[in-house]
Computed example of a mutant assay.
Amino acid sequence: MAYAVAKDGTRLYVEEAGAGTPIVFVHEFGGNYDAWEPQMTFFARRHRCVTFAARGYPPSDIPADVEAYSQAIAVSDILAVMDHLKIGQAHVVGLSMGGFATLHLGLTAPERAFSLTIAGAGYGAEKQFEDYFKGVSLDVAKNFETQTARVFAETYASGASRVQFQNKDPRGWRAFADRLATHSDIGAANTMRGVQARRPSLYDLEKEIAAMTVPALVMVGDEDDHCLQPGLFLKKTLPAAGLAILPKTGHTLNLEEPELFNTLLREFIAMVEAGRWLPRDPRANPAEVMKTK
């Protein structure tokens, strides 16, 4: 097994495949490094593809102290993986929790990213649901501790933005739920408490996001209700962002619609590498409906 070592000594399990311009995949709370297999298999034909298990996710180390988990630490861990592999710059692709970490990497270390793909990022961002989300996150953390991941996985995997996956692809959803059942109880609880419940709202970062010029692709499912408005916010705020809304799709974008996800990501990366993914043309003024003179 290959491991990168984070700043605090936490070991992070890493896998890579292929050769070419690097792509680093950052998984969601409900996934792990192996949840990116449809992308690793597809993109390794042309790229050096990297996936890793976040701290708290076996076979990475599982710190027992909740203070070893935070949004800033999640970004630092991505950079630790890149440094270990001697990757100066990469296309960084993140889903949900990984999407937030990807965005924050762009805010704190934009020089390390050729591009950012921010998929399914929005939970807890909406100001009217901020307190509710924090409370639910703490409840989820407690459930992982008291019920164990093996038992609670079935409940978590049946959420309002997961049933789309279950209905479309029962076998794929079953593999997702079974993977979730293998998570560390303490790792899942600490990730919920230290990262999910404490991260700042996207809307509180509007000024910083508006100043970030890294090419970005925002992806969201149209039935992932609490990511739709944050996705539109990112599209309107990030200067060089495109927005892809996947129809009849929930939260687990890369597994629920792997072919569409890969096609959109492939075109985005190709446009970035051709120097053709540009900031929005200032003539595309949203205040203008039709030109009169």
Rank of each mutant, 00 (worst) to 15 (best):
R11Y: 07
T21L: 07
T21M: 06
I23C: 08
V26N: 01
F29A: 11
D34I: 10
A35P: 05
W36L: 00
M40V: 15
R48I: 03
T51L: 01
A53N: 15
A54K: 13
P59D: 13
S60V: 10
S60N: 13
D61L: 05
A64G: 15
E67C: 06
S70E: 12
Q71T: 12
I73Q: 08
L79V: 15
L85M: 08
K86D: 15
Q89M: 11
H91N: 05
L95V: 11
L95S: 12
L95M: 13
S96A: 14
G98F: 09
G99Y: 00
P110E: 14
P110N: 09
F114R: 14
L116S: 02
G122M: 08
A125H: 06
F129K: 09
F133Q: 12
K134M: 05
L138C: 08
V140A: 08
T155P: 00
G159R: 13
A160K: 10
A160C: 02
V163E: 13
Q164Y: 11
Q166M: 14
K168W: 12
A175D: 15
H183I: 06
I186Q: 14
N190H: 10
G194N: 04
V195F: 15
Q196E: 15
L202K: 05
Y203N: 04
Y203R: 06
E206Q: 13
E206F: 01
E206W: 01
E206A: 13
E208M: 03
V214F: 06
P215K: 00
D222E: 12
D222F: 06
H226K: 03
C227E: 11
L228D: 10
Q229P: 01
Q229W: 05
G231T: 06
K235L: 13
L238P: 07
G242H: 10
L243E: 09
A244I: 12
L253D: 01
N254F: 07
T263I: 04
L264K: 08
L264T: 12
L265F: 05
L265M: 12
M271S: 11
M271V: 01
L278P: 01
R280W: 08
A284T: 12
P286E: 11
